[in-house]
Amino acid sequence: MSRAGRASPPGGGWRGGGTAVLLAHAVGTQALTFVLRPVMSYRAIELDVPTAWLGVLGAAFAIAPLALAIPAGHGADRYGERRMAVAGAVLFAAASVTFVVAGQSVAGLVLAGVLLGTGHLGCVIAQQALVANTTPRGGYDAAFGRYTFAASLGQAAGPGLIAAFGGGQAIPDTGGVFRWSCLLGVMLLALSAFLPSSPRRSAQDGGGEVGLRALLRLPGLGRALVTSCVVLAALDVTIVYLPALGAERGLASGTVGLLLVVRGVASMVSRFFLGRLSHAVGRRRLLVGSTTGAALGLLLVPLPSPLWVLAALLLVVGFGLGVGQPLTMSWLAEAAPPGLRGRAMSLRLVGNRTGQVLIPSAAGLVAAGLGAAGVLWVTALGLGCVSAAARGLPADRG
């Protein structure tokens, strides 16, 4: 890892007229995802789906994208980010319609979850490849910090919409949320049409298989991918099982939504200052420290505590989880050669999706015996393990 990656100037990163469109697209993508996924859990609760099945619904979000991530990255490299974003937005709209039309059954929820996950994949691959391909070397930490800050803004806004649809009730108006998501999907599609594309550049080793082999030889790749995978899975588990924990404790859905907002805002803060934080302490130390803090916070969340303590713990969890994703993106963007950065981001997403398939499904088995609290404790243990593994990442060279 070069010093450029560590010491990127706080204001470094991409510029241009398309920046506002890119950031708005990131906000819209995450807002739509983070309102639909918790509400999918609430609809499952309405249908009296067993708690163990919530993990299966969470895994549905990642099943198809797991197989499509590498082709999507190759498509972004070959055909451009805009086309990939348009395809993702179309699938987002299709998912919203499926929730409205077929969301009265578990099969319908699974189908909608698959469409939602695939649409999310297309949009985020396009966004991440665009940031990687248009950021000058030395500005990745700050650029991906701003990009993921916008994503966190969407993640915070999405659950906040739950409060507008019966937040004072244990179960919000899921049908109303699904109908409004159709409009949001159309708005995202319109934004996609205005998203810029970077100039196409060929990697020296060119072909897909050769390019992937070059990426897989990067030092520390395995540790970085596992860290990214577990951090994202921890975020997913929080989204899926915090509503279940709240229902067990009798918390109103609006309160749970606000707690998810607190987590999202904390992630926004950590990402907004990511360039400065990375410059001050280095990527590896920042990654290890933030992951450890998130693990400790998540370990304490299930314990009986006043609401303000729970909010404070989720503040710590959100801050810690907010750092892992942009740092691994920045590391990959800097290490990958031009023409392979879309595939580099897709390789990272393959690891993320693998975790999203396996970890929530395993969490469902834990929930069957220990409930939502047990799931959060096991997730905290996983974060502690990857925090220890991240110590073996290549050191920042000064």
Rank of each mutant, 00 (worst) to 15 (best):
R6A: 13
A7W: 14
H25N: 06
P38L: 02
M40N: 05
A44P: 08
L68G: 11
L68A: 10
A72R: 12
H74Q: 12
G80S: 04
M84G: 10
M84S: 06
A87V: 12
S96F: 10
V106P: 06
V110R: 00
L115P: 04
C123M: 12
L130E: 11
A143S: 09
A156K: 13
A157Y: 05
G158T: 05
P159S: 01
P159N: 01
G160Y: 01
F165E: 14
Q169N: 02
Q169L: 06
S181L: 05
L183D: 07
G185T: 01
L188Y: 06
L188V: 08
L195F: 00
S197F: 04
D205R: 15
E209P: 08
L216R: 03
L225V: 15
A233C: 01
A244L: 08
G264F: 01
S267N: 07
A280N: 10
G297T: 05
P302K: 10
V309R: 00
L313V: 00
V316Y: 00
G324D: 07
P326C: 10
P326I: 13
S330Y: 03
S330G: 05
A335P: 14
R343Q: 05
L347Y: 14
G364R: 07
A367N: 09
W377S: 13
T379P: 14
A380K: 02
G398P: 14
